[in-house]
Amino acid sequence: MSGGEALREPWESLRRQREAAGFGMWLFLNSEALLFGALISAFFATRFFHPQGFAAGGREAEIVYGTVNTLVLLTSSLTMAMASFATRAELRRVSFWSLGLTLALGVVFLGLKIMEWRSDLEKNMFPGPGFPIEQPGAALFWGFYWALTPLHALHMIGGLSTVGFLTWQAARGKRPLRSPAFEAAGLYWHLIDVVWIFLYPLIYLQGRASS
């Protein structure tokens, strides 16, 4: 496949187009970093007043689901990075395998997340009537939990849709593997991973050493 097919207007060369795609995606990722950064700083600002309540709340988070999902997401970043290199090198089989694995791992992540939410709700871990932890601040911790994890899952659905669409286009021959879109989608996927890298200690590792 030639670079001409991947090249779109208004760029004069695939190199410039690639640079623009990366730059544009990074600008978007900056806004995403500030969205999650603001929520995480609110988390710490609230935790400042309720260290023990947050520890009590955190101990009830499902650490097995959280840890397995961390490993799943880190592995999906590996396959996405491989896809990014493989599409660029136009290695067709490696590209489709790594894109397919990335999508599969993303679906596994969401599936585990739904199972975890079900388990949380069975334990009534939703701030409001019947919330089982008495310490002040624990309900605030779970408020952050129910704000941050669905927001992250929405981003995961966005990532799955984007990577799925690009893979579908490539499989039908409508998008050459050299298209810079794969690399840009990869940047977004890795951002989802980086956000989770920070949510993991905030949510699941809180208060484990104390009782």
Binding site: G186, H190, V194
Partner: peptide, 8 residues
Amino acid sequence: LVGVFFMH
């Protein structure tokens, strides 16, 4: 690690 090696 992710930024330097995976995000180029």
